Computed example of a mutant assay.
Amino acid sequence: MRVIHPLSRPVLGILLSATLLSGCVTNHETGNPEGWTEIKPAAVSEIAALVPPDIAAKGYLTMGTNPPFAPFEFKDSEGNIIGLEIDLGNALASVLGLELHPVEQDFSKILPAVSAGTLDFGGSGFTDTEERRASYDFVNSLYAGVQWAQQTGDHVDPNNPCGLTIAVQRTTVSDTDDVRPKAEKCLAEGKAPIEVLAYDSSDNAATALALGRADALSADSPVTSWAIERAGGKIETTGDMFQAAPYGFAVPKGSPLGPALAAAMQHLIDTGDYQRLMKQWNIEDGYLQHALINEKPVSQKK
């Protein structure tokens, strides 16, 4: 979950800066997953009619995004931005009779750009939170939580992590809301401390686990699944997913673009394109059953 927090807690254990590790097994992406096919449905006139006139006139949607955050958004070997949210954005735009123009930006600048109107919406692993809903509406895309991974055959218990070395992506929920509170608890109880290996990308955190530099990885469940698929059997999940929350595409509060995107999402769900798109990126659970804005069902307007 991409929620930026300041590192206000004391640094516990070893905090590493991001580095590209030799022998990396997860951060060299060549392109879309095996068996991938483009999913760009035909425009649906009744849904396209919901698009705000200024956006309809220009013929495309701008979506702010911040790679790398595989499988949601990252760059292929040619430097193109690809990923689950890019595919979903393309499919939604297609239903609306529009093209999608991904715009790479610093993560912290995407939502302000949406507010300023320089971006139509944001799609970069945003967690739909009550705090953010004060300024934005979120067209939800899926539910995900925190999922730990271990080296294959190990016996790591996420509920008893004292004494372990744990890899995370810096400033994510896994870092600030999962591992660091657990590290503080270990110290408060006089138990062996946790060493926190914090990296600037989830790929490097997963690589640390695969290479044996960490005992465990804490990351968003789709990120963990993606890493496992690319680690050649070196790592596996451990424990249950927890802290489940919705992801979403952010639009300005009250914008008519929200209902238009939600109607397009409902169309993708109804036709099965939503499910097919998720499966292509190894997402097997957390699916929406109905289109949601801020976790509330939206009736498609025709």
Score class of each variant (00 low, 15 high):
240 D>Q: 06
256 P>L: 03
230 R>L: 09
225 S>Q: 11
228 I>C: 03
262 A>T: 02
259 P>I: 02
266 Q>A: 02
263 A>S: 15
247 Y>R: 05
256 P>R: 02
244 A>F: 14
245 A>S: 13
239 G>M: 14
255 S>M: 13
236 E>H: 08
252 P>S: 15
232 G>L: 04
228 I>A: 02
266 Q>D: 04
226 W>M: 09
266 Q>K: 01
262 A>Y: 14
264 A>K: 07
250 A>Q: 02
257 L>T: 05
245 A>L: 11
256 P>G: 02
259 P>N: 07
226 W>Y: 15
254 G>W: 14
225 S>E: 14
234 K>S: 09
255 S>G: 13
229 E>D: 10
234 K>I: 04
238 T>S: 02
232 G>T: 01
230 R>M: 09
233 G>F: 14
264 A>I: 06
258 G>R: 04
255 S>Q: 15
233 G>P: 07
251 V>K: 00
243 Q>F: 13
229 E>Q: 08
256 P>M: 03
256 P>N: 03
237 T>V: 10
251 V>T: 00
248 G>S: 05
247 Y>D: 07
265 M>T: 01
265 M>Y: 06
239 G>C: 11
253 K>F: 11
261 L>S: 02
239 G>D: 13
243 Q>L: 12
264 A>L: 10
227 A>R: 07
249 F>D: 01
266 Q>E: 04
248 G>P: 06
238 T>W: 05
244 A>H: 13
254 G>Q: 12
257 L>D: 12
254 G>Y: 14
243 Q>Y: 13
258 G>K: 03
237 T>S: 12
229 E>W: 12
251 V>W: 03
243 Q>G: 05
262 A>H: 08
243 Q>E: 12
240 D>L: 05
261 L>T: 00
241 M>L: 07
